[in-house]
Structures are given as C-alpha cells and as structure tokens.
Design a protein around this nucleic acid. Structure first.
Length: 216
DNA sequence: ACATTAATTGTGT
DNA sequence: ACACAATTAATGT
C-alpha cells in the first residue's frame, strides 16, 4: 500500500526535501503490524528496511544458547541501523526485530537506500543520525553492564578484607580501593554511596563498616 | 579554644 | 576524567 505525499509530510515534516518525499511515496510500502509481529528474523536476508511512523519495535540479538537479549527499542521516526548495514553489504541479518505494540511503518526497498544516500543529503543525514542514536544507546548499555560488574567486585573485595582481618571495619580510603579495583576514586565513592543507601555499608572518613554480613 | 591547612569525600558536568 | 564544593581530621598558635 502506498502513502500520498500529504500524509508523508505529516510524519516527516521538513526532515526530507520534496523530491525525496515524492520518491518515498512512490517506492515506500506502507504497512501496519500488530504486536508480536516479526519484522526480521536473525539469519534471514533483508530485502527492505523499515522506518517507523509510530509504535515501537524491539531489537533482539540471539546469543549462543539461543536466548534472545534485548538490544534496544526503535520508536518515533527511527529506523534500524543494523538493517542499514546488512543491506549495503548484502549480509544476513544478525538481529531479530519484533513489533512491541501495534506499529505503523513504511518499508523501503534495499536498492533505494544506497541510491538515495548519494542523491539526497537529507537522507544521508537521516541515515547518519540513525547510526549515531543507536551507537549512543549501545554505549549506555555497555556502561550499565560494566557498572554492575564493578559493583560486584567492590563487594567482593570488601568481603575478602573482612575475612582477612576477622572484623568488618576497615581503615581505608576510597582512593586506595580505587587502586585495588583499577578504577577511579570517584567511581568507588559513588558505588559506596549506593551501598550505603542500600544499608550494606556505613561510611565515614578513612573508615568503611560492613553491615548485614549475615543476611543477603 | 580557635584558626589554618591538608586530606578525604561528594557531586555535577 | 576533571573541577569544584563540602566535610572532616590534624596541626599550630
């Protein structure tokens, strides 16, 4: 099903130039999918890429066990950066895309993606900013994972020290802990603050007291 | 007891 | 990571 230019303009506003909107309306395939609909299966080749008009789509990656980890969500006028690369390289998809709610999207044939990049600067910008957005998302996700690991390492270190000296009060500075964990003093301070808020630890200058060592 | 200084810790960017 | 504020301990007078 095709969309007329007016409708497209309603969605994209002045993001795209007039000629591009024209082509979009000619070659773009408009579709509505229900929640749970699989737009893209890992391993499959991609013939077209989606641009969301509304709704949202979750992007998953299958791990070695066959479990699927959530990478990020697409929403708004997002497109899928992964599928953009897959298209250009003619490679199979490494991700799975499933509609998270009823979603309206417009689907663009692969060959147009490449063609438009050299033809329309606004399209090039769109593709570029799509990458940028996804990249930022992934960076954020990595940060959180790294943060969690450090969180556990810090608790582990404190527990080891507790075992060593047979008590649960240490005379140590955040700076020193940071060196043991190969991280900065600020990070240790922030982690400890969180642990204090959780009641796992009591903080004072040059001193850290381990609490609740009996319970988990 | 008070002021001064240095070290440690907390927080925003 | 850096910069700065806030807090606390240590020291000198």
């Amino acid at each position: 099903m095709k969309l007329d230019i007016q409708t497209l303009q309603g969605h994209f506003g002045n993001l795209f130039e007039a000629n591009l909107l024209q082509e979009l309306s000619q070659v773009g395939n408009y579709m509505e999918v229900e929640e749970g609909f699989t737009l893209m299966r890992s391993g499959g080749y991609i013939r077209s890429i989606p641009i969301l008009l509304n709704g949202s789509v979750k992007i998953l990656r299958a791990d070695s066990e066959g479990r699927e980890a959530l990478l990020y969500y697409l929403g708004g006028l997002d497109s899928c950066a992964m599928s953009l690369t897959c298209c250009l390289d003619q490679r199979p998809s490494e991700i799975t895309a499933i509609a998270d709610e009823k979603t309206k999207l417009i689907s663009i044939p692969v060959e147009k993606i490449d063609e438009w990049i050299s033809k329309y600067s606004t399209w090039k910008q769109f593709v570029f900013s799509t990458y940028q957005k996804r990249f930022d998302d992934l960076l954020g996700a990595i940060d959180q994972i790294a943060f969690h690991k450090l969180d556990e390492r810090l608790l582990g270190l404190l527990n080891r020290k507790s075992k060593q000296c047979g008590c649960n009060v240490f005379n140590i500075t955040h700076e020193e802990l940071g060196q043991e964990l190969a991280t900065s003093r600020e990070v240790v301070s922030r982690l400890l603050k969180q642990l204090e808020r959780l009641g796992r630890v009591k903080l004072s200058r040059n001193k850290i007291e381990l609490l609740n060592t009996d319970k988990v």
